[in-house]
């Protein structure tokens, strides 16, 4: 009986310990960000592997998500003779929710897991402690550029996702199903608010980029230095990252689009 209680307590203590380590780690990373202005090359390299290499999956899924949205909304809206509202519905869905959320989930799977695995392997092969030996702070040198690259890439990817999605909905709606092209764009421009819808979506994606990248680099840095440990850390990045995105999305949505 006492063992159960002790285990329960130990489990909670472990959670809080990890949370505390994660937060201290975040502060150290943030402290390393200003130093990056002197070495922009590090960030560019990470922007390439985090952002550019994620382009393909984001663009292709954005295209298909947009096509599916266009088709589904068309089927439902045409029952009420409201096909002209297709563009507004698709645009709002993408800008407010699907753009930031789906691209963040894909980002956690594509770039977050890669970051964790890379950093975890660096730790396993003692490259990180090697840097410490040479008086180079690995948090400043390895973690900070990856963190910054993640925060920059995420909103870019989310905006691209939404734009590609709307164009594919245009392709389906106007090209294949015969919605009027002029009303497609003008309805969108008259009902979608720049500040209220577009900017809020971008703010969401910045928050998601921050959280997902933080989780990814921390899991890598905190991984057990064994092949199994790195594998587990990678899994945790995807699971925790996705859960964090989805739960944060609810909080952000209720703050942004709840009662104004």
């Amino acid at each position: 009986m006492l063992d159960v209680l002790a285990n329960l307590g130990g489990w909670w203590l472990g959670i809080f310990k990890r949370l505390g380590r994660g937060f201290i780690f975040l502060l150290q990373t943030l402290a390393g960000l200003p130093g990056l202005f002197l070495r922009p090359g590090l960030v560019i390299k990470q922007l390439y592997s985090v952002g550019v290499l994620s382009l393909m999956i984001i663009l292709v899924s954005g295209w298909f998500v947009g096509m599916v949205l266009g088709l589904q909304f068309f089927i439902t809206l045409s029952r009420f003779g409201a096909e002209s509202a297709l563009s507004v519905t698709v645009d709002l869905t993408l800008l407010r929710e699907l753009g930031p959320v789906v691209s963040a989930l894909l980002f956690a799977g594509r770039a977050g897991s890669a970051l964790t695995a890379e950093i975890g392997l660096m730790k396993t092969t003692e490259q990180l402690s090697g840097m410490e030996m040479m008086a180079v702070d690995p948090v400043h040198r390895v973690i900070a550029p990856r963190f910054l690259a993640g925060i920059i890439s995420m909103p870019v990817l989310a905006v691209l996702f939404s734009v590609v999605g709307v164009f594919s909905a245009y392709f389906v709606g106007v090209g294949l199903l015969g919605v009027d092209s002029g009303s497609f764009w003008s309805q969108m421009q008259s009902s979608v608010d720049w500040r209220e819808d577009a900017v809020n979506g971008i703010i969401k994606s910045v928050v998601f980029g921050f959280v997902v990248t933080w989780i990814a680099v921390f899991e890598g840095y905190d991984a057990l230095p064994t092949s199994e440990g790195v594998g587990r850390a990678t899994t945790r990045t995807v699971v925790h990252g996705s859960l964090a995105v989805l739960s944060l999305d609810f909080i952000l949505t209720s703050m942004m689009f709840g009662e104004i």
């Binding site: 550019v52 800008l95 909103p155 870019v156 905006v159 734009v163 969108m188 009902s191 979608v192 577009a198």
Partner: peptide, 21 residues
């Protein structure tokens, strides 16, 4: 990376001009 950033700005421009008010 330059192309990536340019693409981002282009998307933002389309978002502003075409897809919102």
């Amino acid at each position: 990376v330059g192309l990536f950033v340019a693409l981002g700005f282009a998307a933002l421009f389309i978002l502003a001009m075409k897809m919102s008010n």
